[in-house]
Nucleic acid binder design. Structure first.
Lengths: 337, 337
DNA sequence: TCGAATCATTAAAGCGTTTTCATCGTTATG
DNA sequence: CATAACGATGAAAACGCTTTAATGATTCGA
């Protein structure tokens, strides 16, 4: 089946292809009756503009790339929902790239982004190094980084939508200090390094202000099973901290299970909080305390910001207006008191 | 910054653009020394072919669409991993479409697929109706449906990669019969209707063969919370079934929690199995019995099949070779005996 | 009634590739 | 040595669209 082109429509409606193009693009210079005729032809033939040809003619593709680490897929679902919903509203298509240690080097992803001439890019935290982002900058591709706050860099014109994890940790630690709790631990998460860095920095800051040093940075393998095994072993010879920060659900649950099975009471012997919220935290006994992080909004705001950058919206001309901090709130449940 | 085109390279290397094109596409008709010269020019200028222009010239885009329901993100992560890995191997880009009741009608997704001239489409089960698939067929777009087995349809030339859920249920129910268990329930999952249908059909078949009728098809709202609330209430006046099939983790965990809190012992008073496996099933006490479904492989095999369809590979000329059934196995854990 | 001004439409160039066909320079052949 | 055959390269058309500049048709005022 030959695909219907603009020529076919032009012939059918007995006008030139320029006129058809104007009708498609809703130009108002075309007379009402010819517009009618053209639209009927389009309808009759079932014509659908070829986005590739449009892309070539306009040098824009109404497509944006999303770059996400393969491992984080399960955790970023809501952010992605937000991104996709807003992308739909503004009629952008999505090119989806995943990064993973094994198969794809970053270089390939960047290469593919450049080749496919997408209009913009949404990056999840920890995907690209500063160098790699600079490459995209050279090609003038607007970028938004979603997740945690970017360090100050020479790179300009990058949007950033984030939650202030440093403040989150700082504030919570200070509240703990007021309750007389100083035996605090932080469980490392290798998947979210930059977010971790901010949490840690917040904790350290609070400790430093009290003239103490924070040292309980716990690190073990990244899966539930190995975390659980490690902790089960650990609690044979150690007592849990009074308060533990974890990042992801599986770390919190591993701690909960290992701790309880070692005979410790939660939250009496050990309080636990899990930074990233999801439904599984309500399925444990007790339910795990967490933070309400506006994940969907992070996605939606990021995409909206990008669409603004793509049309050079005045409201985001200066650097600050491209840095958007979103709020969070603590959700106390059964693992804290 | 003006983007480097094939003309710039041609000028730099002092050849025609035809020659440059030949070098890019690894044609072997070009002399070794000119090839060298061209490659140096490419390197020097940092030339990257414009995939859009290539798409137009070749009428192919090396891009395939993936269509997934927004709600199923969290559950299809591994399938997606498989898809992406294989796509990378064969150098295909991914256009990502999500379907959701609210914002996007299927019609828009289909429209966008047609407009963007992707080479092929991967559909997750339950995304498109037969009618909608037929539209894509008209445009000769190769399709693979991943998930459960497609009903026999008039639609030809559609790949299908699936697990035989009907057999899975049928077999398990027969084993239960042998142990004398006939009080069996199935919890509905509104997100995976076609898979559910197959499970149900398997159970019904087993019952029918024993001259019984299967009636315990339990349906309640879809979130963990509402499931849990419903069941908690339910168990105030009812006993649990001897054996319950659930589909997703949250349903199984809701049952587990509600059942145990109502004073019933698992697996003694009620056995539970959850069809879709994931790590959360190992975080409960007891761990939840499940099936090993090769999710990653389902993705990888689907994409591989599609790549074969895209090059008209001989090995998949007939309809049967495009129907690929993957195996599964039962993983007994603490909720069955 | 004529020319100017306005409005609608078309012709054609351009977007960056690939590819067919023609051309030109070499080498092999009788 | 003349010519056929071949190998490497270039010119130009094609892919399907947008848009500028030119043209044609219409209206209006004097």
């Amino acid at each position: 089946m030959k695909r219907i082109t603009i020529y076919d429509v032009a012939k059918e409606a007995d006008v030139s292809l320029a006129t058809v193009s104007r009708v498609i693009n809703d130009s108002n210079v075309v007379r009402e009756d010819t517009k009618q005729r053209v639209q009927e032809a389009i309808e009759k033939l079932g014509y659908k503009p070829n986005a590739i040809a449009q892309g070539l003619a306009l040098s824009k593709t109404t497509t944006v790339s999303i770059v996400m680490s393969e491992k984080l897929f399960a955790y970023n679902g809501k952010i992605l929902n937000g991104l996709m919903d807003v992308a739909k509203i503004y009629n952008y298509n999505i090119m989806f790239h995943t990064t993973s240690k094994g198969i794809s080097k970053m270089q390939d992803v960047i290469e593919s982004i450049i080749k496919s001439h997408v209009d913009g890019v949404i990056l999840f935290n920890d995907n690209f190094s500063e160098d790699e982002m600079e490459v995209l900058q050279e090609y003038q591709i607007p970028m938004v980084v979603v997740g945690s706050q970017l360090a100050e860099t020479g790179i300009d014109n990058v949007g950033n939508v984030y939650v202030n994890f440093e403040q989150m940790a700082y504030q919570m630690v200070n509240e703990l200090f007021e309750k007389g709790i100083t035996d605090i631990s932080l469980v490392e998460d290798k998947l979210n390094l930059s977010m971790m860095a901010q949490l840690r920095s917040g904790i350290e800051k609070a400790f430093a202000e009290k003239g103490m040093e924070f040292k309980k940075y716990i690190s073990y393998d990244d899966t539930y099973k190995s975390s659980y095994n490690f902790l089960t072993d650990y609690f044979k010879s150690h007592k849990p901290s009074q308060f533990v920060f974890t990042f992801r659900d599986s770390q919190a649950i591993a701690l909960l299970n290992a701790c309880q099975e070692a005979g410790y009471k939660i939250p009496d012997d050990c309080q636990v909080v899990c930074v990233l919220n999801n439904k599984y935290l309500s399925m444990t006994r007790p339910n795990i305390s967490t933070f309400n992080i506006p994940e969907y909004d992070m996605g939606a705001v990021s995409m909206r910001l990008l669409t603004k950058m793509l049309v050079d919206d005045d409201s985001i001309k200066d650097k600050d207006s491209k840095q958007i901090e979103l709020g969070y709130s603590f959700i106390p449940k059964g693992t804290t008191k």
